[in-house]
């Protein structure tokens, strides 16, 4: 089991966990008018990761009206983030959420006996991979909580975001993020590994100018640094 630590890449922290194909955000305590903007800021700082995501908000016993929830949903929508569900023990919040058509539970329930959410699981088994049998072109994006295998190229402007490993049987030129939910042991492999930007977990790197012919490479985190090395068959 892999834990997803709070994402703290750029200042504002955010309690974030992956659930199925969505993301669970726990809204911290405090004045809503302070908490909400800082949450939006935290999302903005990770716009790439959140874009296209389905969000489940855990607001505990906070009492939110339809106007607040609606405004929140609209602000998320502007960021291409879908508000899928709102988790709250407040009757007012639940009824406002229901009126807006939001789910009031995690879409695929993972509730324990006492109503506590169980720790999020990311058991990255072999069958939790998605196979993409075409070239990903500019503007196309794949997000998957497990592994991603692309039979084709990942062109500049395309993006692959995976909770696990990314394998590209072709040229990897776009942006790739492996271990996007915090697994720093993820790897990225490609026949030609020259991504615009390569991320594993919280590590970010850009490709150096390539010398010589393309060769299959594997990128991973070694001693806290992103390294790429030639694929060895041994």
């Amino acid at each position: 089991m892999l834990k997803s630590p709070p994402v703290t890449t750029m200042g504002s922290s955010l309690a974030l966990k992956g659930i199925g194909d969505g993301l669970l955000v726990t809204v911290p305590d405090g004045d809503w008018h302070v908490v909400w903007p800082s949450l939006l800021q935290a999302i903005d700082e990770r716009a790439d990761f959140f874009r296209g995501a389905r969000l489940v908000l855990q607001v505990a016993d906070r009492d939110l009206g339809a106007a607040e929830l609606g405004g929140l949903r609209d602000e998320l929508q502007e960021r291409e983030v879908a508000l899928a569900a709102i988790l709250s023990s407040s009757a007012g919040t639940r009824s406002a959420g229901a009126n807006l058509g939001l789910a009031l539970e995690i879409p695929r329930p993972e509730l324990g006996e006492d109503g506590e959410r169980e720790p999020v699981r990311f058991e990255l088994e072999g069958d939790q991979a998605v196979l993409i049998e075409r070239t990903l072109r500019s503007g196309q994006k794949v997000r998957h909580p497990g592994h991603v295998v692309v039979l084709g190229d990942v062109n500049p402007g395309a993006e692959v975001i995976a909770g696990g490993n990314v394998v590209v049987w072709g040229k990897l030129r776009g942006v790739v993020h492996a271990g996007a939910t915090g697994n720093e042991r993820s790897v990225v492999c490609a026949l030609d590994l020259t991504p615009t930007q390569l991320r594993i977990g919280s590590h970010i790197s850009v490709s150096p100018e390539r010398k010589g012919n393309p060769r299959p490479e594997k990128a991973y985190v070694k001693d806290g640094n992103l390294v790429a090395e030639a694929w060895k068959t041994s």
Binding site: R134, L136, R137, S138, G139, Q140, N155, P156, G157
Partner: peptide
Amino acid sequence: VRDADRIIGLVE
């Protein structure tokens, strides 16, 4: 070229 690639994806 980048925009052309985007369009090709949409056509596909």
